[in-house]
């Protein structure tokens, strides 16, 4: 550097920190002393200390003596070329491990504890994994569920449509039998709300056995009847509750009770008869998925009534011209 003052490229700079002989200014000195004092006055917490201690110890224990060690140099001069000492081939090459035992845990306690920690960690990990998987498949499952719900909804309405056709076509007897003279199918079509029916209607309804209905919409009928029965029960219960007036006239109350009780018994018997019997046909039908059930009804509607459930209209001929196809997808 001194020889060639123009050679800026090869010029080196003194690292001020590596040159302790360089004078520091009094300001720097004050600052340094202040910083050092602050560092000194900070007393590490016990925990910090213990942790530092452990870290330093483990670091030192993990560091082998290297060739800079005087003893290593002496040993090398004696002819040591690495590996183990002595004459046996399996001589050890590293010192015996220093294992610190803390506390009074029995033999195996520590590894048991570690095992438990590990297992807990693994379980936690597993849970997270599963959750991740769920996230991935969540949409899939949600979509399936949505489709399922849609298919179920479609099935219920298709059953009503079919019922409408059936009762419209061959259910004349029912309509006639009904004192109100109103076709059930018609009513459904109008309101779609079976809650509106009065128990009076039901009681007076001609109770055709469930099996007599077309299998394809038999669940609809059954559900309706169950609901009706429940409503009836509720109403009867309400009626049977002794009101102030009734208490004044216990006789009426008693009579009513007797009468209603009989009615209930009859109904219950009927229901029991209707639902108690095993309906294998119905069971098999309900074992199908909603989509399959829906498809069956759609097919039935097409073949028997030239009605397309998706177009919501009845075609004039067998060709069903204008209908894009059998499935919902084909209807866009």
């Amino acid at each position: 550097m001194a020889d060639d003052e123009d050679d800026y490229l090869s010029m080196t700079f003194d690292d001020p920190s590596s040159n302790p002989s360089r004078k520091e200014t009094s300001l720097q000195r004050t600052r340094r002393l202040k910083a050092e004092a602050a560092e000194r006055s900070r007393v590490p917490s016990k925990k910090e200390r213990a942790e530092n201690e452990r870290v330093a110890r483990e670091a030192a224990l993990a560091t082998a003596l290297d060739a800079s060690n005087k003893g290593a140099q002496m040993l090398a001069k004696m002819g040591f070329k690495g590996g183990g000492l002595g004459k046996s081939a399996d001589a050890r090459t590293t010192p015996v491990e220093v294992l610190m035992k803390e506390g009074r845990g029995g033999v195996g306690m520590e590894s048991e504890r570690k095992r438990k920690v590990r297992e807990a960690a693994e379980a936690e990990e597993g849970l997270q994994k599963r959750q991740k998987v769920t996230e991935v498949e969540y949409r899939e499952r949600a979509r399936n569920e949505r489709e399922e719900r849609q298919a179920e909804g479609g099935w219920w309405s298709a059953m009503r449509v079919l019922e409408g056709f059936e009762t419209g076509a061959e259910g004349a007897t029912i309509t006639q039998a009904s004192e109100e003279g109103e076709g059930e199918g018609g009513e459904i079509k109008k309101s779609g709300n079976e809650e509106d029916r009065t128990s009076k209607d039901v009681v007076s309804l001609d109770r055709k056995p469930l099996r007599a209905f077309n299998l394809l919409y038999r669940p609809l009928i059954r559900q309706r009847r169950e609901k009706e029965a429940q409503q009836r029960l509720r109403r009867e219960l309400e009626v049977s509750l002794p009101t102030a007036r009734e208490r004044e006239d216990p006789e009426i109350d008693l009579d009513d009770k007797t009468a209603l009780g009989t009615a209930i018994e009859e109904l219950e018997d009927e229901d029991a008869e209707a639902e108690g019997e095993a309906d294998a046909e119905l069971e098999a039908y309900e074992a199908l998925t909603f989509a399959q059930r829906l498809e069956k009804i759609v097919q039935e509607l097409r073949t028997r009534y030239r009605y397309c459930f998706w177009c919501k209209c009845q075609y004039a001929d067998e060709e069903m011209e204008g209908c894009p196809g059998v499935s919902e997808d084909e209807h866009g």
Partner: peptide, 15 residues
Amino acid sequence: VHFDLMDPPAPETLM
């Protein structure tokens, strides 16, 4: 280095 011990110590111990 080659002294025949039944269980020779680790070289570092000797160093």
